[in-house]
Design a binder for these strands. Structure first.
Length: 645
RNA sequence: CGCGAGGUAGAGCAGUUCGGUAGCUCGUCGGGCUCAUAACCCGGAGGUCGGAGGUUCAAAUCCCCCCCUCGCAACCA
């Protein structure tokens, strides 16, 4: 690093977490990665601002709060506390935690909305479609039959459900140009191609930016039926959190840190951050963030982590068993740049044992032990260098450069790998120099002193590099080897470890080796002991409510795949003298042949609908359990037409 | 023909930009060492680089076709 007059700013954000449940390890990975980058940038001399937060509005939260019989604000207060607790548990060093329910944020969102409305970029329109008054339903051009409602066959008229829309297309060319001129803007590159081919090239639809169907959101100031829908609300946290002011009286932080250097987000929301968000900024005449990185996902083994699959792993459980730094190390190391990573309890143990315990912890332990054993914990100034030492020194200094290069391109896992190569090199150096045999010869005392110094220095350099990834571990090692030389500058050259410092006389192993079998058993017991979630049922209904549903038995006469949708099957169902077509989303579980001739339960009086061009009159009843196993409800003896009650 | 990613040793991955002895980690087998946490270091075995064809003196790498897996989009009345 060259000498700097003024520190360069670096603004990094994570996506804000949706405050509707406890984040699992996959969600937690993002903030840990952001934290590692933020800490690294701080160490290398940047003036860093690191922001995270929660998205607290929307229908789902409104519903969940209702389910819990809580006021939505009280509900999100509680959820946000849970999220914050995990972020803090992971030792993440964010500077600001924004909540979309913050007064300042809400006020700015309203102003932004107003400004765009006045500018003409947001306009009120109605959901284009046909409305059937008796059915209270909207139909598209393709759905209506001969200008009539496909449901009741009565007249329909032009739709009137109002909504505010954002003119996306107006800025599409400008955005496209920006993407092309800034190849680093969307990372990794595969995501960029996806955006261009799937969304920009086919042409952007105007985006619906308000809702009337729920209340828990930022109200539109000039039209109180509407609340601002997620995009404008959530995305603008990146500027409101810094004190952006729509009228131009920006806070100091905003003036200093915007535009963001990096939005770190999951690959599932790349579209919102690389299309909607930049366009929103263009419309507001604000400069665009420099880079958006859509990171891959953490999978459980080979599957997506999800509650319904029952394979959720939470950060706090992992930390309970392995400690914060081990988990930080695991997620950062195991997640490749552009491909999904994988986590299992077994894998975590393997990584900890082979990398943290064997290579790193043991290296520190054996080195400190030797310094104690041969020099009473304190090295001297006498030196005797050999050519073999050069190699270690070069390697260490090269590693510093390599890590910097990798971090610059956000290759966090590769950076960690490089550090561990240095640690391996140190272990090898011990075998090359054989300190214990030097110790047997009084004449080789100086040589031995030099060898151990080199080892401590190698460890010190590696540990300074490790600090952004495992802050606690680094601190412990600084204590063990008793050094104050922990700045980044101190590792740009060899030999800054303080000679006369006494290392600890009781080196405690940094990472204990784990007995995999015993540990897995312990974990298994713990997970089983965790209370299973209480069964939740929907609100009580009366027998009259139930009587409205006409459930019948029907014989499947014929069944084929839906020509234009791979998850759907099109069935011909006979129910007494009635014969009808029903579309069902069970193509992933049943092949058409399996169903023909079966007698299944279905809802006979459900309003008809067109699904991808095929009419469906009714719904086949199925049962699905948590693992995703799905079966139709089938009878054998009863004739079709039979009533189910 | 929707878009995209991937298929390399038992497992997980790098190498493909710009063709030239196929590499890393874990596991496994053998050896070395005794400072250390049964840790560390060295070596061996194990791969027709998804398949067929083409270009070339030479293909994991370039071109064409095909197969398989995953993600996104559409879709679950």
């Amino acid at each position: 690093m060259c000498e700097k007059v003024k520190k360069k700013e670096y603004y990094i954000t994570t996506a804000i977490a949706y405050a509707s449940g406890k984040p699992h390890i996959g969600n937690t990975y993002e903030i840990v990665m952001a934290d590692a980058i933020a800490r690294y940038k701080r160490m290398t001399g940047y003036d860093v601002f690191f922001q995270t937060g929660t998205d607290e509005h929307g229908q789902k939260i409104e519903e969940k709060a209702q389910e819990a019989k809580m006021d939505p604000q009280a509900y999100v207060d509680q959820q946000t506390a849970v999220i914050k607790e995990i972020w803090d548990l992971m030792n993440t060093s964010y500077d600001k935690f924004v909540r979309t329910t913050d007064d300042y944020h809400k006020k700015q969102v309203q102003k932004i909305f107003e400004k765009l409305y006045k500018k003409g970029d947001i306009y009120k329109s109605e959901y284009e479609g046909w409305y059937c008054t008796p059915c209270e339903s909207f139909w598209t051009d393709a759905q209506i039959v001969d200008g009539k409602c496909p449901d009741c066959e009565r007249e329909v008229h032009k739709a009137k459900e109002e909504s505010y829309f954002f003119k996306m297309s107006k800025y599409a060319d400008q955005l496209m140009e920006h993407i092309e001129n800034n190849p680093e803007f969307i990372q990794p590159e595969s995501r960029k191609n996806e955006m261009i081919n799937n969304f920009l090239k086919p042409g952007l639809q105007d985006l619906c930016v308000s809702r009337t169907s729920f209340k828990w959101g930022v109200p539109v100031t000039f039209d109180d039926k509407h609340v601002v829908y997620v995009w404008i609300d959530a995305l603008s946290n990146y500027i409101t959190g810094l004190g952006f002011d729509c009228d131009g009286n920006h806070g100091e932080l905003y003036k200093k840190y915007w535009p963001a250097d990096l939005h770190l987000i999951g690959k599932d929301i790349v579209r919102f951050h690389t299309i909607y968000w930049p366009i929103l900024l263009l419309a507001l005449d604000i400069s665009l963030p420099k880079q958006v990185f859509g990171h891959p996902w953490m999978l459980f083994g080979e599957e997506k982590i999800s509650k319904s699959r029952g394979n959720v792993i939470y950060a706090d459980d992992l930390v309970k068993f392995f400690g914060v730094d081990a988990i930080r190390y695991f997620v950062l190391n195991e997640m490749p740049f552009a491909q999904d990573g994988s986590i299992t309890w077994q894998l975590v143990i393997e990584r900890i044992n082979s990398d943290l315990a064997n290579i790193y912890g043991n290296l520190v332990n054996r080195t400190v032990s030797m310094v104690n054993k041969y020099f009473d914990g304190k090295l001297t100034e006498e030196r005797e260098y050999k050519p073999i030492d050069e190699d270690l020194m070069d390697f260490a200094l090269e590693t510093v450069k390599k890590v910097d290069h990798k971090m610059d391109s956000l290759r966090v896992a590769d950076a960690l790998d490089a550090i561990f190569e240095l640690l391996r090199r140190c272990n090898k150096y011990i075998d090359e120099t054989l300190p214990w045999s030097l110790a047997k010869d009084e004449n080789k005392k100086d040589r031995l002193n030099t060898v151990l110094y080199n080892l401590l220095e190698g460890i010190r350099i590696a540990t300074v590099l490790v600090e952004p990834f495992m802050p606690e571990t680094a601190r412990k090692i600084y204590n063990q080897i008793n050094t104050k030389q922990v700045s980044y500058n101190s590792i740009l050259s060899w030999g800054n470890y303080e000679v006369n410092n006494k290392v600890t006389d009781k080196p405690v192993p940094l990472f204990a080796r784990i007995d995999a079998e015993a540990k897995l058993e312990e974990i298994q017991k713990y997970l089983e002991a965790k209370e299973p979630e209480k069964m939740k049922f929907k609100d009580e209904i009366t027998i009259d409510d139930f009587a409205k549903i006409d459930i019948r038995i029907g014989t499947i006469l014929n069944c084929k795949k839906h020509p234009k949708a791979d998850k759907l099957l099109v069935l011909k169902v006979k129910c007494g003298s009635d014969e009808r077509q029903i579309v069902s989303g069970i193509a992933e579980k049943y092949s058409p042949e399996q169903l023909i001739g079966k007698k299944v339960a279905f809802i006979a009086n459900l309003a008809p609908i067109i699904l991808r061009g095929q009419q469906s009159r009714g719904m086949i009843l199925t049962a699905e359990d948590e693992s995703g196993m799905l079966e139709t409800i089938t009878v054998n003896e009863v004739e079709d037409g039979a009533v189910v009650k």
